[in-house]
Design a protein around this nucleic acid. Structure first.
Length: 80
DNA sequence: ATTCTAACA
DNA sequence: TGTTAGAA
């Protein structure tokens, strides 16, 4: 009850892929590109929270603007 | 069934 | 970016 928020619940890559419209491939790639940092669980599975979802959505919008992982990293770095 | 890593095209 | 192999 104290852990409820935009940073606690976590979704698997499959659900975030469905919510963001990206593919698991892209999500894994952006993670490697340092665009975000999902938490790992037990079997090394990526767990994305609401915040990560919004971040992925933002990345997607940036991609539509003509940016690439490099430009997005710069923007996310400025915001962090 | 779902996800993970690594590697290739 | 898509996909495949083998593994958990």
């Amino acid at each position: 009850m104290l852990d409820v928020g935009a940073d606690t619940p976590a979704y698997t890559i499959g659900v975030v892929a469905d919510m963001t419209g990206l593919t698991a491939r892209q999500i894994r790639y952006y993670e490697k590109a340092e665009l975000l940092k999902p938490v790992r669980t037990k079997g090394n599975q990526r767990l994305y929270c609401q915040k990560d979802i919004e971040r992925l959505v933002q990345i997607k919008k940036l991609l539509n603007k003509g940016l690439n992982a490099i430009g997005i990293k710069k923007i996310l770095d400025e915001q962090g």
